[in-house]
Nucleic acid binder design. Sequence first.
DNA 1: AGCACGCCGACT
DNA 2: GTCGGCGTGCTC
Length: 837
Amino acid sequence: MTPAAPSLESWLVVVNLPIGPCDFAPPHGWAAPAPLGCRVLVPWRGALEVGLVVGSGDGRGGHRLREAVHVLDDPASPWVTPATVSGVQGWAADARIPAGLIWGDLLGVGWQAEVTHMVRAVEGADLSMFARRPPTERWTDAGAFPDALLDAIREQGLLEERFTPRPRMRGAVAARPLDEVPPASRTATVLSAVTPAPAGLTAKQAQAAAWLAGHGPCDTLSAWAKGAGVSNGVVTAALNAGGAQYTLVDAPPPPAWTWLHGHGPVDTYAAWANSASADGVPLTPTQAGTLALRGWADTIEVPQPPPALPEPHPQPDPAGAPDPLPEAPVWRLHGGRARARFALLAPRVTRLLTQGRGVLVLAPDHATLRRAWEGLSGLAAHAGTRAAQLTGTLSEPQRAHTWQLIRTGEARLVIGSGHALAAPLDDLALIIVLEEASDAHKLLSGSRAFLPDLATRIAAAHDAALALVGTTPAAESVPHPGAVLPPPRARVHVVDYANPPEQPELGPLSSVHLRLGDQGYPLSHDLARVLRQVQERGRQAALLAPRRGYSALLRCPSCDHTPQCRNCDVPLRFHREGRQLTCHQCGYHQPIPERCDQCGDPMWQARGPGTEWIAQEVQKLLPGFPVYRLDRDRQDDLTPLMRGESGVVIGTQLLLSHEPPPDLALIGVTLADTWLNVSDFRASERYHRLLRQLAEWHPTRAPMLLVQTFQADHPALKVMVDGRDTLAYPAAEERARAALNYPPHARLAQIEISARDQHKAQAAAQDLADALHGAGATAHEVLGPAPSPVARVRGVYPYHLFLRARSDTRLGELLRILDTRTWKAKIRVDVNPRGGL
DNA sequence: AGCACGCCGACT
DNA sequence: GTCGGCGTGCTC
């Protein structure tokens, strides 16, 4: 009944929920320091949850602490390295993100305890007041009792608990030992003769009884009748007259059981039936299930064999190759092609691995990850270690097994996505962030972390170096010391929609639409000509469309009405395939209306620069030429193209995450301006990166890059045409950022204030802005509030407030003002937001 | 995130 | 009177 002796220490434990760490007392009898980075089982809302120990406190939180129940990992080999814990916690604190959110994003594995849990009552404890059938003093599996009951007893200190690690299990069907099969299943009801035969049987009946007595029991009446050579009526009468009786006899195990007994567990009833039948024991899955139901088989759990892992890609040993890369805490490597960059990285990576240290490679998307795996994984073998891949696309058992390989030190080169960032590398020496400017590093839900920011914190906490490696540097990376390769050769052809070539017979036509029509849209005359060449020569082309689908709005020609999403303040997008209007904001979709619901006039057919329309235009231009589409809505099978067959693929930016067709002769950007008409200070940087990535998409060739645009003079495009300097554009961008006070010369955060009631949201946003100003924030530091670009999303009204601070420290100060009181709307912070400013 | 609690309008 | 919508707050 007495609580544990008041301990001064408490543990800060993070659970996989969008809340901050909670305090727990160490488990009963725990004397060692807090097991930082280890997983623990903690009482949570009446049950046990897995949590991660991220720190310790003084236990004076003011409320009575519950004890952590069990430490799942050996403190000598924690689930997450303590340095990683401190790096991530530091980021979470500064970004004012609940720690549970970010850990939920980073740890793809380990939230499930792989233990067997046994309980018993403390000796002498009377638990009868808790339940009719409480735990006894015998060890019993905890599953036999309700969670809430166990927790109530646990809280009183009357429960003893034992946890033993359990290997990963899978369900299986096994033969039950013969002595455990229920007796009813092991006997059969048979007809046997009664001796001596009673008097009064007719002749036929007596004959039947005599046969039964001589030939032994029968299973059925008809079997008896058949055996005795009489009709069914005779044996029924003989039975009723007492000439035979039903008796129980021992039955042999059914052949299906004997088979299972000899072959060991199978995965499913169907597998049992199939394998047994194949071995000459006829069995259907239904029969197998019936046998199990009668107690001949048990469903059990068997240890899972280790899953297959990605194979490393062989690489030559770079031992002795020169290593010209910087030794700074943060450095960069950009330009060239992926293959050349990895070749340059190889000596450094191999040297660190050979020293017994760890290297982590963070890739933003699947295509970059695949190239990194091809370019680096083989190095591990030269350094006496293994390479491990950690991504969300692996199965859960694969991730768990990989995590274990890293934790035990067997694999020290880790290549992966965000799931790899917290990998428990013991002596981390280097984190390589690939394509550090990629928006794909931004988590769109949960913590909304920008993973390179976290990588920076984790590297610093480990005293490891951070390398930023990619096609073209982010403006933020320019100030770091680095190595630069010349950009790959690019053949760029620009179609300038704003300044068509002189055509005197045209007259004073100036409208954009006429110019578009004149030069050809979406396929300009130049693009059409090159596409025809591609067809004639049997080669391959890729066209980049600004959007998926038909991607246009539906508009009423009479009243100008455009159908809107019912949940969001955006017009619905027209998708010809599937005949639907879809909201690209929330996914709401409805059939296409024939008539305007405002004035009743017929609606216009929509046309827009989506993949669907461009594909149609290409088919019109090149009849019979294979056309493939690749976007989120439709992903055609590109196998013929990848085999080298002629054709054209039309896609969104998703194209870049696929392998390029091997005989690619042309890449067309149908309307480059899409990447520039975005209200985001990173738009032109993003545009430049897209062009550079397109230029190096094919690993060896330089296909023609045909860009259709109204802004032919844009510097991001011009450097592609005449520049051989990888850094020229990013450096100019960086200077522009300095002038405008944008990153890296400022730290940004977006605060989203949202409520179902628009006025409430607006008032709360204003309230918050006032509070920030009242607490000393300057007009320069607080921008807004303003309604979100989409005024209503999924039925709520978001307002945005931007913070622009000169340093992380100052940003932290500003964000801490949010904690000073509660606001009357939902507040969400997004540090280092991408897009929308 | 769930889940309980509590506050208001629509009904047997 | 209660049923049930949802807004608010808590989880150690």
